[in-house]
């Protein structure tokens, strides 16, 4: 048993437990808190994949900004526990079953594949997943998509104000 496998096991189990709490919690605030812990454990998994920059962004953007947005909306709407569970309609039962079906298909397919992490030279290993390498990639090869994303964020910002404001 090596340390990496043990860490992966701990983070994976905690991620799945937190995700299970997100979808089973009765009150939205409990769901939101479970989602925060899911994001933190996922950031740990990202670090195990040598993606430490993305892990930091995950904590800053997801666990920080997006979850604050969620909590503010829950607070504004003053949502308590759901008075009644959703009725088990046919669509709902079929939807839940199809999620399990997709999981079974994916598990069987992925169980047959063998994929190992790449062996990297010392030079590549030193650059992999660093802010410098990702920044270089973004500002050379992916410059146009990056600018498109900034435009998208601007549109989302204006759109959110227009949609949520009662009178303009």
């Amino acid at each position: 048993m090596n340390t990496e496998l043990v860490l992966f096991g701990v983070f994976a189990v905690m991620t799945l437990v937190s995700a299970g709490l997100v979808i089973t919690a009765r009150s939205p605030i409990n769901s939101a808190m479970a989602l925060v812990s899911t994001f933190f454990f996922l950031a740990g998994i990202y670090v195990l994949l040598w993606a430490h920059t993305v892990a930091v962004m995950q904590v800053l953007v997801y666990a920080g900004a997006i979850m604050v947005l969620f909590l503010f909306v829950i607070m504004l709407l003053n949502l308590g526990e759901a008075a009644h569970r959703g009725r088990p309609t046919v669509t709902r039962i079929l939807g839940g079953a199809s999620a399990f079906g997709l999981l079974a298909v994916l598990a069987v397919t992925l169980g047959r594949t063998q994929a190992l992490p790449a062996q990297m030279s010392a030079e590549v290993q030193g650059k992999f997943g660093t802010m410098a390498a990702i920044g270089e990639s973004i500002f050379t090869t992916w410059l146009l998509p990056f600018e498109a994303v900034s435009l998208l964020l601007l549109v989302a910002m204006v759109g959110a104000v227009v949609v949520a404001k009662s009178r303009i």
């Binding site: 799945l16 299970g20 979808i23 709902r92 939807g95 199809s98 999620a99 399990f100 994916l106």
Partner: peptide, 14 residues
Amino acid sequence: AALFCMGMFGVLVR
């Protein structure tokens, strides 16, 4: 895959 299917379950059931 497990995480995606849990999310999908939640979207379709909650």
